[in-house]
Amino acid sequence: MSDPFPIPVPARLPDSISPCPIVEAIFELRFTTTETWATLPGLLYALIRDKYRDQRRLPLDHVPEELRKDSAFTHMPLLQFLSPDFLIQLGPRVISLVTKSNAYPGWPRIKQELEWLLGEIKKAGFLDEGERLGIRYIDFFAEDIFPNLLLNVHLCGQPLKGSECQVATVLRRPPLAMRLIASNGAVVKVDGVPKSGSILDVDAWFGALDFDVFENGVKRFDDAHLAVKQLFFGLLREEYLATLNPQYP
């Protein structure tokens, strides 16, 4: 098998690029609990309601519990709690902090919110054991992203150009696993308007033996964030990155 992480890590990483391509960032914790779904939302809401006043039931919450036992739904959220800056998604075995669409607040602000949220989860006392700690960044580009990536797709020895294309792969940087999806056939809502273009969708996570939620959870989110950032900037061609107005520290 080839190098499990073949992407070169740039010597310098920008603090930001503009326009910011991040559509959404999700910081997710999967867990086990002895609490039933009937009690879980109340345990959390009692602690976060000052910041997250509004709630929204997601469509899956209307599906009977027996049907939700299908493995495809095990880690899906059923409920959202909303604040002006973020939303929190909760399911029977998952909780996630999600940025508002197309309004990425920057890593320091996210890290601050994660520290607060993990503290509230600890106080709520429902978390039995962490199963997976992961982050996911979804970036949108109006153009075909493939010519701008250090990623080539060939068909019968010829570069695949101009066709609708999607590539998904899992890369390993132990103890992290990372799943990368690149697609030039995606539709994203930007300021409420659907736009067609490309997405880079990167998901990085630690397995159950590689983190402890309350001991090093924030540090692990930090590690995963850095790895995703390195992958993102490592994947872009230098000349393309230069067009994105990178700001270096």
Binding site: E24, I26, A186, V187, D203
Partner: peptide
């Protein structure tokens, strides 16, 4: 099983 997001859909 992916992290849930409905912020994009594919052609």
């Amino acid at each position: 099983t992916l992290l849930s997001s409905d912020c994009y859909h594919l052609h």
